[in-house]
Amino acid sequence: MIHIGVTVDGILRHGDVEPRTLLVHWLREDLGLVGTPIGCDTSNCGACTVLIDGRSAKSCSVLAVQVEGATITTIQGLAQDGEWHPVQKAFKECHGLQCGYCTPGMVLASVDLLSENANPTEDEIRHGLEGNLCRCTGYHNIVKAVAMAAAEMRGE
């Protein structure tokens, strides 16, 4: 067992983990942060995406021991003081989710995308979300939502 200390959704968490424990399993099973789901076992789907030090990462392809000392934001910590992030608001407004299983990953990948590119084209949005699969929406409304959130965040 290896000891780690990680700030997750604004709270410092300590834990003893096996070296092989995946970050997503530590979040879900040990910390009870079950808002981050698992969709595959080959790092293809992106459902498990979280922000590690502000950058999106697939938490199924990171070991818990690798995030020692890092700051992690999951979907459960994205809203600030009860106020939703513009991406969350836009997903609702544009009906960018159906079953919602891909949604935590999509939202966090979008947050990262917009922090890199404040005014993405449709093509850039599609490429930016290439690592996140959705089986319900056909992506149409997700793309719309990201563009709407971008406009909102630019103050338009």
């Binding site: 099973e29 079950v34 808002g35 981050t36 789901p37 939703w84 609702k92 009906h95 919602g100 949604t103």
Partner: peptide
């Protein structure tokens, strides 16, 4: 009308079967 379901799905307050421990 914007969906009632969305609030829990967008904030990670979901109840997937695998969440049950």
């Amino acid at each position: 009308i914007r969906r009632k379901e969305d609030a829990r799905l967008l904030t990670g307050r979901t109840n997937w079967t695998d969440n049950i421990q």
